[in-house]
Design a protein around this nucleic acid. Sequence first.
DNA 1: TTGTACGCGTTATCAC
DNA 2: GTGATAACGCGTACAA
Lengths: 338, 338
Amino acid sequence: MKKVTMADVAKLANVSKSTVSQYLNKRYEYMSEETRKRIAEAIEELGYQPNVIARSLKQKTTATIGVIVFNMLHMLTTQVLHAIEEECQKRGFQVIVSNSGDDPEKEKRYVDMLLAKQVDGLIIFPTGKNEEVYRRLTAERFPLVFVDRMVPGVEADSILLDNQKAAEMAVDYLASQGYDRIAIVTPPLVAHNVPRMERLEGFRAAMRKRGLDVEDGNIIAADPDALPEVLKQRFAEPKRPNALFAINDLTLMGVLRFVKDAGVRVPDEVAIINIDDVPFADIYTPALTTIAQPTFAMGKKAAERVFEQMKAKKADGPRVFRFSPTLMERTSIKREKK
Amino acid sequence: MKKVTMADVAKLANVSKSTVSQYLNKRYEYMSEETRKRIAEAIEELGYQPNVIARSLKQKTTATIGVIVFNMLHMLTTQVLHAIEEECQKRGFQVIVSNSGDDPEKEKRYVDMLLAKQVDGLIIFPTGKNEEVYRRLTAERFPLVFVDRMVPGVEADSILLDNQKAAEMAVDYLASQGYDRIAIVTPPLVAHNVPRMERLEGFRAAMRKRGLDVEDGNIIAADPDALPEVLKQRFAEPKRPNALFAINDLTLMGVLRFVKDAGVRVPDEVAIINIDDVPFADIYTPALTTIAQPTFAMGKKAAERVFEQMKAKKADGPRVFRFSPTLMERTSIKREKK
DNA sequence: TTGTACGCGTTATCAC
DNA sequence: GTGATAACGCGTACAA
């Protein structure tokens, strides 16, 4: 069934393969009205579908880009992916998605597989622990864009949230409403996780600027699962925080779990703000004030950059794109406190 | 850089392309220890990467499957996709993801594109409005699996929730706790959307079995956006429902929006249950009782079926796989009411 | 305007 | 054991 080839069409239309090829590539000027019609009919009759593989072999381009993410289940990933896919479809490209599960070994394997499949570009949500692999790519000027995290020492386009600003936004808003004992809640801090560190740094800087203390006890780092317990302990100590800044949606879940279990009232006893605009933010009680990432714009940009790199064979210098977060003011923070 | 080909390796190792090919396909018996070593070295030295495209052209198989979903942003989609990807990676396959946005035209285009790219199989979350396309596929015995929705009249493997059972589960649980005025909340009912109809049917059947009335006013169908308003009106009428059964996560959001805005207390004034285990179910107050779909198992099965179809060239008869939902008992329903 | 011949990188089939 | 040589399906000079 699928064995209909150009040759078959040519034969039926009484022309040569090359003419059919011309037709397929819309170079109609090179043929008579007559033959054009015959070819069209032949194609229709046979239900001919060009074999993209054969074309790729010749042209060394597959109209496919590879995306490797470190966690497919993250909402951010889903949304960015969605935008990437949309942007690619517009250009007739398709997307191969791979999930590294944050495992550098897997990530490396997938890069190789994707390369072997001759993808025209790569968008990676990097584990961050494969410098050599990334570098090999950039050295060859292979179209590459990092998303969400960036890799120090690797010169590639990177699409990132303006993490410092996001943290600052949180602190500023909280402080402006009169909160002074603000704690940051984060997954364990690891140096290679740039955004995490940037958010912490932004937090520190903003607190300093506002003349607020950052006590050690108010940097709460724990795995999401352990978080409720850790928070419980912290709240048993003196000088409880009166505001919690969750660094992402996962830690937010830990925070919410805690306030629910411990019966801590929001925002009366503690205010909550977080990065990532979770879908249930405004049906939650109280509605959650959040700092949203422009996920769609980020995905779109990522795709655009790959295409630009594909076009411009010369490297126009890797760039870092910082996207501004948006404060979604709701009610998990009391206004004008004090 | 990437132009290292088999010929280069062959030259460097002083053998012919065929021998290199043998080596690559691990047919070591056919060569001396000696040459084998030389080839290995040559490959290493040149950093040779086989060109999968060329191989595909010859073998007519791409180790790639295509997935077309109707809404990439749905959580169900994400989770099923994740399982599919994992299952494919195990077998060295990769996944091209396309989003139809529930637009039949787009869906059709993507099927064609994917076919042109010679994918070895297709997993589709179907719009349901492309019967001819689907049928063309099954007629050619092309490996095809439907997920989430099924298409009447098209004989293909389908991975589905046991929708009747899910609805029954909701009604049974609600009834067993003493609720009698149960309303079903759903997006607009359209005939080609099989799961939606099945859930409604299951609801009706279960109510009948329990001897409960289904008043017209208690079948609440509206677009998610309009839902809060529609519910508000319904609750202004006499004989309010004392329990709401949301058919999926989207309508659940509408329901929650409504109870929040209208200040209706859950579960005191109205109980809530829904299909789809939303991530915030147990940090919500009250914790949401839900009926979870085994998304991971469903995705895994979908992938497995494609592979089985690929293997067994003869059609072993299309099958429908019904997955049993799980009741996640939480607190949005009062126990032992009355 | 249309046809011929060759190349793309592999694999398969035979000889040697 | 190893090596020519012919496919695979399409694009493209170049010739006609």
